[in-house]
Every structure is written in structure tokens, then in C-alpha cells.
Design a binder for these strands. Structure first.
Lengths: 227, 227
DNA sequence: CGGGATATTGATTGATTTCAATGTGAGTGG
DNA sequence: CCACTCACATTGAAATCAATCAATATCCCG
């Protein structure tokens, strides 16, 4: 018996925070004092080693957090969807690059506002800790994915996570990112991702309506594959 | 120009915390009210899904945080060395298993003591956040390692990280874990780890004095390899 | 001085990458 | 409205790196 909803995915969907009472203080902070900023597809939101003076919250679209290795290799560390907060750093500068996967809108608040808030309000401080810990949990799942899983297992995991994150009704998932993005997230090549998707379709596990729309036809089989 | 000391390794070595003033409140909490507990090599410190009622701090020895997949595959998420704090969870239960890599001693404090401390003291709350964020940074580096790196790059990274963590003088590193542990951390097989080490020795990059002691002979070459 | 776990080395297999070509679809301008 | 184009995706064949299977070596400990 597994949980009804995978909590392990790359998206927390903090849009509507779970805890009751006063609601999410951080989300409120963004809502009240956040400056909305639009980014075009593939635009850089912040770059590696740039000063980390702001925290960000996705309003619309999707964002990728990634790093470029010396040669061309790129690793996407995480995707962020509406409601997700990202860009908060321990040190003074960003350790990764953030880019718009699609046209998107994010809210910005000054880092100082955030830390100040957390210093004054114990609940906000806990929320900040919870945020970091959630991010850690996602990164840990990512490690599990990359460490010892086959291409099929990775793609199956990815599709199920995506379904959990932006799954519409009826098991249809809109994929907001390119095959290259998926490959760089899963530690595979686009060719392998493509081949695996095709194999899943051939096997009746999924249905492909173009490259960006997938129907999860056999969720149990996908779950079994995710190892 | 790279940093003199890799901050990216799997060990923070929080033994002597960097910030001045009152010193580390959390470390102090462990020192004052922590209960010391010894574990034999390979003993389980806590198991996956067990209630997470305690936080832990390594005093002596090494600890591995890992998960066993349905089939035999195992992924080690992190190693913890003296000074490291581990086992703090967002939810009520542990998401991984913690085991003693070698005979070791850890200090335990009740989770409630920790959270209570953080609620009362803003500085402690920040420290807790910093702890989670450091763990996140390590996991992110781990993702980078596993995502698109060759066996050579992984082993080179590992050795350099280890040197940063428990490196004695003169570039000699005591490896506290088995080849199997290393393999399960790097997402490789013991055979590949072994062959890579041998290749490094043959190439003059390292010297092996038994399996558990390595001399980093050509650090620049190893750095170049770590990609 | 065994003896069993741990590590190294060797030969072969296999999954994924790489190289290469073809297909498809969205956006644009005639 | 259609053809063009360019980016993106799929498919195919070959190469490669690491895994697997198998045997031997070494080290630690009693």
C-alpha cells in the first residue's frame, strides 16, 4: 500500500499551504510585498555566482534550476512550478542558475525582508526551515533517481511526479519542458528519453499527443517501473 | 581560479562552527543535554519509517544515510563524520536508514528539545535553517555527481571531498568506509570503484597503502578530473 | 597459521551514448 | 492560406563505458 499521492516529486505545490491557522506567512509576504516580474522562455532569472539578494516565488510558468559543467554538460537540479519558492541561499551568491522554462511570472522579495521576517516571527522561521527541508527531500529523491535507476525507471518516475505536480484530470499531463530539459534533469540524453517514451507508448503505458502532452494510461505499471 | 577548499563535499565538518559570538547553539545543546550512544560497525542507528523523535550528532566514527530499493540496490545519500548533525526530519518519521559505517559514538537530543530551542531563540532557529540548507547544498552536489559524471570523475570528486573532510596532513586520507559503501554512494559497482582507484594509482594520481588509506599524489590532476 | 570477509583483476555482456539521418510541428512572411 | 523554415523530436546503427559474471588475491582477526 503506497501513499495516494507521491510526496517525493520535484514539486511541492506550496500554492495552498497545508497548515491551518494564519496560513503561510511566507506566501503572504510574497503576496503583499513581492514585485511581479515576467521572464520570457529561456531567459535567465539569476546566474551562478551572482549575489543572492532576492527570493523568488513562481506565479505562472515553470523555472529550472541548473548548472553548466565545464564541457557542455548541463544538470538540472530542480523544476519549480507555480507556488514554489526558490533562490534562497545560505551564502551571499547563487550556487545555480535559474532560467524560465516557459514564459513565466515570478514574485521577488528582498532577502533581507525574508530574514528579518524570520528573525521576528518564530513561525516564519520554522516555515523557512520547512522550505529548506522540503527542498532537501526533493534533492534526496533526485539522488535516488540518478544513483541506481535505469532509463525506464527514471522516465516513469518523472512522469508520475509531473502528474502529481501539474496533472490535470483524466491522467493527462501537460509537459512544460523540452526533451532536453527532461534529459538534463534525469541524467540521460534526449535520444534515450525519446526512445523510452516511445517504448512506453508502444507498451500501452502512456499515450502521446504530440511531444508535450502525455496521457498516463497504465499508472500501476508506471509505478511498478519506478522501482 | 577555484576555491582553496572545496565546500561542496559531503561533509560540513561543523565541529568548530564558523560564526563567532556565543558559538554554536545547537552544538552546545548537544554537548549539554545530549545522551552519548555507541554503535557497533554496521549497526542500525535508526530505520526508514521509524518515528523521528531524536536528532543525532556524530562524536566519533562515521555514519551512512541510505535507502534500500525493492531489489537489492542500495543508495547512500550521505556520509556523516564527527561534528555532523543528522536525523532531523520535517515529518514524523525517518525517510532514510542511518547505520554505523565504523564503530561510532553519537549524541542524541530529543526532537522536541531542538524545536523548542528554535522557537525560543531566533539565532538557534537560523542555525537549524542553516543546517538544513547545508544538507541541501550537499545533496545538490551529489545530484551533480550522479547526473552526468563518469566513473573517474565520481571517484576523483569523492577522494577530494574526503580529503577535505578527514584529510590528515601530507595529503593522506583515511577512508573510513568499504568499497561497497563508496560504490553505493557514487552510483557505481565495487568493481568499477576498484578499477578506477587502480587506474589512478597506475597513473600516479594517488598512492594506495591498502584499501583504506590513500595518498593524493597529484591533486591538480584529480581536480581536473572532477570536471 | 588459517579462514572469511573484502578487494582486485579478468572476460564478457549490455544499456545508454554517440553519431547520423529523418520526421514533425509551430510560427512567419509572402 | 499556404509554403517555408527552424527548432525540436524521433528513429536507426555503431561505439563505449560501466555492469555483470567469475576467479583470484589480500587483509584482518581469532
Amino acid at each position: 500500500m503506497t501513499k495516494m499521492i507521491d510526496t517525493a516529486g520535484f514539486i511541492a505545490s506550496t500554492a495552498s499551504p497545508p497548515q491551518g491557522g494564519s496560513g503561510s506567512g511566507l506566501a503572504e509576504l510574497f503576496a503583499l510585498s513581492g514585485a511581479a516580474m515576467p521572464f520570457a522562455r529561456n531567459a535567465e532569472i539569476y546566474g551562478e555566482d551572482e549575489p543572492a539578494d532576492y527570493a523568488y516565488r513562481v506565479v505562472r510558468g515553470a523555472v529550472r534550476i541548473c548548472k553548466l559543467l565545464s564541457d557542455g554538460r548541463r544538470q538540472i537540479e530542480a523544476f519549480h512550478l507555480p507556488g514554489d519558492i526558490f533562490g534562497i541561499e545560505l551564502g551571499g551568491s547563487h550556487r545555480f542558475t535559474a532560467e524560465a522554462v516557459s514564459d513565466c511570472v515570478v514574485l521577488l522579495v528582498r532577502r533581507s525582508a525574508l530574514t528579518g521576517f524570520a528573525t521576528r516571527d518564530a513561525e516564519a522561521a520554522r516555515e523557512l526551515w520547512a522550505l529548506a527541508t522540503r527542498a532537501l527531500e526533493r534533492a534526496q529523491e533526485h539522488v535516488l533517481l540518478l544513483g541506481r535507476k535505469t532509463a525506464q525507471e527514471r522516465v516513469a518516475s518523472f512522469l508520475l511526479d509531473l502528474q502529481g505536480a501539474c496533472g490535470g484530470r483524466a491522467g493527462t499531463v501537460e509537459i512544460p519542458m523540452s526533451r532536453q530539459d527532461i534529459a538534463d534533469y534525469l541524467g540521460l540524453t534526449i535520444e534515450t528519453v525519446s526512445r523510452t517514451m516511445t517504448a512506453f507508448e508502444t507498451g500501452g503505458l502512456i499515450g502521446l499527443r504530440g511531444a508535450r502532452q502525455v496521457e498516463l494510461r497504465d499508472r500501476p505499471a508506471l509505478r511498478a517501473l519506478r522501482a
